[in-house]
């Protein structure tokens, strides 16, 4: 009896919520087609020999077997970490230092001016920066080679192949964007710092607490939420990024800057092997998923 009543009321509640369902319908239908269907079909097609023209053919685990015996792919994994980990650390801590510097400015007017200036780099498309850095890294006439010659660190007329030398190229990709302070991360940190009440900061000064100690004991614990946000999304972003390979190095010299996502791109859009590329995507998805869970778990453990 009571369960029937409950059922009744659930149906009635659904009927009462009909406007809500109607309003959500365009979103849900759109997401089903454009955002749910592709990843599911990708997982499914990774077991197929699939290209743009022919009918897909089921090949079982063949794609995965081939993938894990391809040295280009296997070597691309450590390369990815070599590039992603320094970049991630830079993208988390350098903006934090910049935010602390701007936060320490006493004049409110200047502080606002710096906040606007720090955002300025976003006015140029990221691609334009990459193409600019391509010129900066020009082996013979580039800004970096010119500067090193001007400061007499290297002799006049030296050619430094920043992106073509396999011992230098990883460093060059990490160094790109130096001094890495511009962008939205600084502002997000600053908003966290501004939430710290002035009383806390003033009393820390009165107690003779140095700025560095305050940063370590008060600011950092309060910014931990932002740091974790950048850590999780930054890591996911870094793992998948291959714009520099696409524009600057083409994965070279040789295969030295190949990362898994670039490998996938080449297999799909140069070789036309969509099924095989889907298998790469599948493997990367699992890796990213496990890594995210690992970080989230660790985070809970810390709390």
């Amino acid at each position: 009896m009571s369960s029937k009543l409950k059922n009744d009321s659930l149906l009635r509640r659904i009927w009462k919520g009909r406007l809500a369902y109607l309003l959500l319908a365009p979103l849900m239908i759109g997401l089903l087609i454009t955002s749910y269907y592709p990843p599911i079909s990708g997982l499914y097609r990774s077991f197929f020999d699939w290209d743009v023209i022919n009918e897909p053919v089921f090949v079982g685990m063949d794609n995965f077997v081939e993938l894990f015996s391809d040295e280009v792919f296997l070597n691309s994994i450590p390369t990815m970490f070599q590039i992603a980990i320094p970049r991630l650390l830079i993208s988390i801590f350098v903006p934090l230092i910049m935010a602390e510097l701007i936060f320490a400015v006493k004049s409110k007017k200047m502080q606002y001016a710096y906040r606007v200036m720090v955002l300025l780099p976003i006015v140029a498309p990221g691609l334009v920066y990459t193409l600019l850095w391509q010129k900066i890294y020009d082996p013979q006439f580039g800004l970096l080679t010119t500067l090193l010659q001007g400061m007499n660190i290297v002799p006049e007329g030296t050619v430094i192949n920043w992106l073509g030398n396999k011992d230098l190229v990883i460093f060059s990709l990490i160094f790109k964007g130096f001094p890495w302070v511009g962008g939205t991360a600084v502002l997000i940190y600053m908003s966290g710092l501004m939430n710290i009440s002035t009383e806390v900061i003033e009393s820390s000064v009165l107690d003779g607490c140095s700025t560095l100690r305050r940063i370590w004991h008060i600011d950092l614990p309060l910014l931990i939420g932002q740091i974790k946000y950048f850590l999780v999304f930054g890591l996911i972003g870094c793992i998948q990024d291959y714009n520099d390979q696409l524009i600057l190095t083409n994965g070279g010299p040789g295969y030295t800057t190949y990362v898994p996502s670039y490998y996938m791109y080449i297999k799909a859009f140069t070789a036309g092997r969509m099924g095989y590329a889907s298998a790469v995507g599948f493997v990367m998805f699992i890796a990213i998923f496990l890594l995210t869970i690992f970080i989230m778990r660790k985070k809970k453990g810390d709390d």
Binding site: R45, Q240, A268, M274, F285
Partner: peptide, 17 residues
């Protein structure tokens, strides 16, 4: 939950879609 679906998983099948 879709925020957790990485772009690498969807690029190729989206193109085919």
């Amino acid at each position: 939950a879709l925020m957790m679906v990485p772009g690498v998983l969807t690029l190729v099948p989206s193109y085919m879609l």
